[in-house]
Design a protein around this nucleic acid. Structure first.
Lengths: 150, 150
DNA sequence: CCTGAAAACACATGTCA
DNA sequence: TGACATGTGTTTTCAGG
């Protein structure tokens, strides 16, 4: 991958609705050349999609927390991902090495809702939980577009 | 906020490059009405931006990990956010309540790079680290567009 | 990677309820 | 205030080279 492509990735990370014309202007390409590059970046899987970022605060979910979970019975561990996915408050979900099975990031309205969610995780998913409340989100999903080639 | 607006948020979360014409078709609005709604959602801060999602794997950073950090000296805690932000491997950074000061999500090429990064965090930022390697990312930044009004 | 032209789209303005 | 119609300028898209 080359410098122009990396530049395009940086531009589209910053503004996912940028027009091909503007991408062309910024990179010294014609509109159609820019479009072709973008299409190739999509096809090669470097760009996986475009998304509007929504404000959890403005949507009424100002409270963010990490919840580490661990199934009481290790046999239930596989179902857990699906159960967690079914909970709308759970916005991200990772399997991790180490003590916990899953780490999830949740967005809720207040502590009462957090409490209710944790009960549901314990009850439905039969998992132990360890919760860490987020005080400030300094940055999120910042994009790394300096590094290696592809 | 009303049902149409929530629908628009869901559409733009799923496809951030959707045209106003298509949004209109999907919601039963005219192109210009759809455009107006979107503009208002942006102005009211519900939509904070549009971004291309890049594949960390395709970019050569297949290894994801959480790093909990805590400054040796609590007085250094404020500087830490800036130091962490200066490290390109750190893609997300949260301040948290509890034992750690910060939780960061990092994306690196391999364990050697992770090792080097942790050394830098300890050395530069003067922080203790506790690292949890991610095995699978089940989903990330899934959007919550059912909930409350605004 | 570029040119060029047709189709689709964006967006401002004006109108109506 | 919210939806829509229309007109103008852009952008997209698909020929071609």
């Amino acid at each position: 991958m080359e410098s122009t492509d990396r530049q395009i990735l940086a531009l589209l990370s910053a503004d996912g609705r940028m027009s091909y014309t503007d991408i062309g202007k910024a990179t010294g390409l014609s509109t159609s050349a820019a479009q072709q590059r973008v299409r190739r970046l999509e096809q090669r899987g470097l760009i996986t999609g475009y998304h509007a970022s929504l404000s959890a605060e403005a949507l009424g979910h100002p409270l963010t927390a990490f919840v580490e979970t661990k199934a009481f019975d290790p046999a239930d561990d596989d179902k857990a991902a699906r159960l967690l996915e079914a909970m709308p408050e759970v916005v991200s979900c990772w399997s991790v090495a180490g003590d916990a099975s899953y780490v999830v990031l949740v967005q809720v309205a207040n502590t009462a809702e957090l409490d209710a969610l944790l009960s549901r995780i314990r009850g439905q998913a039969k998992m132990d939980t360890t919760t860490t409340v987020v005080l400030t989100t300094h940055f999120r999903d910042r994009t790394l577009v300096a590094p290696s080639d592809a």
